[in-house]
Amino acid sequence: MTLLALESCDVFYDKAQALHKVSLGVEANEVVSLIGRNGAGKSTILKTLIGLNRAASGRRLWKGDDVTALRADQLGRLGIAYVPEDRRIFPNLSVEENLRIATLMGRQGGWNLARVYDLFPVLRERSAQPGDTLSGGEQQMLAISRGLLTNPEVLLLDEPTEGLAPLIVDQLVEAMRLINAEGMALLLVEQNLRVPMKLAHRQYVIDHGAIRWSGTTADLQVNRAEIEKLISV
């Protein structure tokens, strides 16, 4: 079943068109990646999915229902969570408050504070610190955990491994694998193939605000040279 989808969406920033007739979807329990270079429109797609951007035309679908008109808070309550590119940790909330605020929505599911702390033990150590005193990797862990605690059905992750040390990247990849193994769908945005090749079942390649290629990870392996050209700087 398709959980979340865009259908032929055009998105504009003022007069400039950022997305051209974009259609894509995430199935339940699936890991899908959006790859493309900086400015290709990947983040715009995520923001359109979570309701922070409005599509000028086209539809947003949730389990087949038209949810184009819903606001971000309503989409969040449906079961969509968002881990933004710049992490957007609330600086004036403690680490634990950054997590507890995600539980206020009251969605039931397998993720709670204790389990998130087990997944990323460093967050437990830092629980009383202000959110903006964490390192980049720790902030990423916090942003992912905050998304998890809404107990969503699909987690949208915008470049979760960007700019992090290889050791931290490995830790995050393992965490995402575990999260998906427990039944949550992931939509992963990345600029290169490194992490998507490890995790994703299906891939979309984005360039200039449109989808240029899509297929399974095995297909991508076959066409790798061509894809690399589309996403290389």
Partner: peptide, 24 residues
């Protein structure tokens, strides 16, 4: 309080608070 936490979060980043289900 819970309300204070919501006010602080929504003041610093309204859109992020929205994605967490808060009606800003």
């Amino acid at each position: 309080s819970k309300w204070g936490m919501i006010i602080r979060a929504a003041s610093s980043d309204a859109d992020m608070a929205r994605t967490l289900g808060i009606d800003v």
